[in-house]
């Protein structure tokens, strides 16, 4: 069971980290509002649930899948707007980006509070997501946890295919490596930036949609995960999808198992110490490309 708890945490961390790995790893933008984009996705699912159950109850069993897509689009389009109105002016000013995205996170939290109230909300989940199944007497596996894991795996595969098999994914990887040369090779780097930021935010929205199956959503739900998410991305190696996956898996499993043996927050402390040690030896993270300088 402890191992399954680790898998659930792995899914949560990976979903959050995938979007951040794209924004931070590919663009170098420290987006402190990333958690709020996750919350935006969660609130979008809550709103979809409310609308469907009030006006279209016949759609109730199916709405959740559509709500995930809507959460992706809402968070992605908001990200597009934020990049256009704010981030693009700050690309060469990392400290200003840090401040601006922190300010944005506060604005978004307050907006959630003003619109949805300070109390946490939960969408009405379809029947098929409730309950659990028992492969044996002592093991009880929740269906929502399995769903989140499936969604995480599908999203990871989708992102991999997008990054490594599509032309825009190629342009994103080229722009990361050499922005000036990408432009001189004919790539519209400004458009690539906007698309990259928007995609990362959209993925955060999907992460938020997935979280609604596990817990309730409040205005500061996103900010609770932001530090762990940055840890995953930095520990894995900022420009590596494989690194993000391995890092999320290692941190989540390590944390779950060590918390079982060490109790309380000591498990988390032990994991943090390991991360600090590894980063002292390998500042570039676990996975870094091996190429000629």
């Amino acid at each position: 069971m402890q191992s399954f708890a680790g898998f659930s945490l792995f899914s949560v961390l990976l979903l959050m980290a995938l979007g951040l790995a794209i924004i931070f790893g590919q663009m170098g933008v420290v987006n402190l509002a990333h958690g709020e984009f996750m919350a935006l996705g969660a609130y979008t699912v809550y709103l979809s649930s409310t609308v469907v159950h009030t006006y279209l109850p016949a759609l109730a069993p199916y709405y959740f899948v559509i709500a995930i897509v809507i959460a992706f689009l809402v968070a992605g389009l908001t990200g597009w707007l934020v990049e256009w109105s704010l981030i693009r002016f700050l690309y060469k000013r990392p400290l200003d980006t840090l401040l601006a995205t922190w300010g944005l996170s506060l604005i978004m939290q307050q907006s959630f509070r003003s619109i949805f109230g300070a109390r946490e909300v939960t969408p009405t989940l379809p029947e098929w997501l409730m309950g659990s199944f028992k492969p044996s007497e002592s093991i009880d596996i929740p269906i929502n946890g399995v769903f989140v894991m499936g969604l995480t795996l599908a999203l990871t595969l989708g992102i991999w295919l997008f990054m490594y098999r599509s032309r825009i994914g190629l342009q994103m990887r080229a722009t990361v490596q050499n922005r000036v040369m990408s432009g001189a090779a004919g790539i519209n780097t400004r458009l690539v930036d906007r698309f990259t930021f928007s995609l990362g935010c959209g993925i955060a929205g999907v992460a938020g949609a997935a979280f609604t199956t596990i817990g309730s959503t409040g205005p500061d739900s996103g900010s609770r995960y932001i530090v762990d998410t940055f840890l995953v991305v930095v520990f894995g190696g900022t420009a590596s999808l494989m690194g993000t996956i391995a890092s999320a898996f290692g941190i989540a499993q390590g944390q779950s198992i060590l918390e079982f043996f060490l109790k309380g927050t000591m498990g988390k402390v032990a994991v943090l110490m390991v991360i600090v040690l590894v980063l002292m030896i390998r500042p570039q993270g676990l996975f870094a490309s091996k190429i000629r300088s």
């Binding site: 342009q171 080229a174 990408s182 090779a185 004919g186 490309s289 190429i291 000629r292």
Partner: peptide
Amino acid sequence: FPALTVSENILTG
């Protein structure tokens, strides 16, 4: 682009 393959490098143009 050092981390892209040769064919990917060509495709960027």
